[in-house]
């Protein structure tokens, strides 16, 4: 089961689909296939139904948060210094656009092979954090996609019942995101150290126990 061949097969049968192989450097060698969100459902159907693949069992669905990162690159700029034009090296900092990712681990119960790792990416982390739901293809994605919606805030279009699953309905944050700030309940920390110690101090100074 070669990822390259599967990729070309998908490209042949699902028209207009952008695919990219994401290599995995670890010894597990579980490389993944990044699928364009617009054609994801068609790709998923193909993977499930193609007679020699038959990925009929979607085992694990999860989200990953990749916040925007600061990329610093060095560029040479011409500047007038002391009346003379000189070439000066400057570092320019740009913000890469963060995104959220949904990862699907597929296995085949019929052919007993796997895992096949499928990745979908949202355009950004805020307003356009939308992905198509793969629940119509694999029922097992239903509750796991709800969990991603709850904890990461990815909206799955076409999901039959997209509600919060673990946190209560009135909750507003998405706690598994990396920039989530937890509620301040550091009244009493008997063995506080490091980060917890700082938070406990902030709490004591702010509230005054």
């Amino acid at each position: 089961m070669n990822l390259e061949t599967i990729k070309s097969e998908i490209e042949a049968s699902v028209s207009g689909c952008r695919l990219e192989i994401i290599p995995n450097a670890s010894p597990s060698e579980q490389h993944s296939l990044l699928v364009d969100a617009a054609r994801a459902v068609a790709v998923a159907r193909f993977l499930r139904d193609a007679a020699h693949l038959r990925f009929d069992f979607c085992s694990n669905v999860t989200g990953v948060d990749w916040p925007s990162k600061e990329i610093s690159e060095k560029i040479k700029v011409k500047k007038i210094l002391d009346g003379v034009e000189q070439e000066v090296e400057e570092t320019r900092k740009t913000q890469s656009l963060g995104y959220l990712e949904a990862v699907y681990h597929l296995y085949s119960v019929e052919k007993k092979h796997g895992p096949f790792v499928l990745r979908l990416r949202t355009e950004d982390r805020e307003n356009r954090a939308h992905l198509p739901s793969l629940t119509p293809v694999w029922r097992s994605a239903e509750f796991q996609e709800r969990e991603i919606f709850d904890l990461f805030g990815i909206h799955f279009d076409g999901h039959p019942d997209l509600r919060r699953i673990l946190m209560w309905d009135e909750f507003e944050d998405h706690p598994m995101r990396r920039d989530y700030v937890e509620p301040n309940d550091y009244e009493y920390e008997p063995t506080a150290h490091d980060e917890v110690l700082q938070k406990a101090k902030q709490h004591q100074n702010g509230v005054g126990c």
Binding site: N24, A25, S26, Q30, H105, P115
Partner: peptide
Amino acid sequence: PKAGEAYGR
């Protein structure tokens, strides 16, 4: 561990 990912079951 080095950068990468794995799914074990």
